[in-house]
Amino acid sequence: MSPPASAGEGVRDILPAMIAAMPIGLLFGALGVGKGLSVLEAGLMSILVFAGGAQFAALELWTYPVPILALAFSTLLINARHVLMGASLAPKTVGFSLLQRLGAAWVLTDEAWALAERRALQQRITPAYWFAVAAMLPVVWIGSTFLGAWLGSFLGDPKRLGADFAFTALFIALIAGLWKGRATAITVIASAAAAALAYVTVGAPWHVAAGAVAGIGAAWCAAPAERSTP
């Protein structure tokens, strides 16, 4: 298939995700200015980071003075899944040059990864397809963040509208989307209990590390032990 045809298919595949990303980007921008970020700072985060879950978590943790280490740590944990996605794509993108690989990684998102994996079942992933499917989403995300931040600066106190609770509601919805039955339930209960306890006793931002360690540890313990291979 010619590169323009592959690129066209990439655009077609990513279109629903682009439409879905718009209201979420608007919400991110509006909540960002509500937390005290300037329009430019909210937009800059979407330009440089463009990872929705990590960005919303950063806003929830955002205070002044800015807890830089806690923000970097929370971002690392939430985005660690990218390592597995990249590792899975590596053998399917062997035709990419070094520069193309570095660029391909730059625009890796959950959505582009899922679509590329589906395509890889049928045919090779070409650079034309990958950059079409992957690089469009950040454009929508950045544009809707700026627009949402600009609109949000007219809204006033976000707490009056319950917008501060939007993070909690959004994260509950995201966790529901990740749900894999018993293993997730054990993780969620352990993390919630440890995080709430750490928040009440030690204070923010330690609740993130406490909840993460407890949730991951609980999943480790609950999983069946590996059978040793002879």
Partner: peptide
């Protein structure tokens, strides 16, 4: 990188564990 068994379960648990930890103060305290 080929994770199996407990290592895979622990890795899969990272996103929900972190997301829950971030909202636990608002939701519970």
């Amino acid at each position: 990188l080929a994770l199996r068994g407990r290592a895979k379960a622990a890795f899969d648990a990272i996103p929900p564990a972190v997301l829950v930890a971030v909202i636990a103060p608002t939701a519970l305290a």
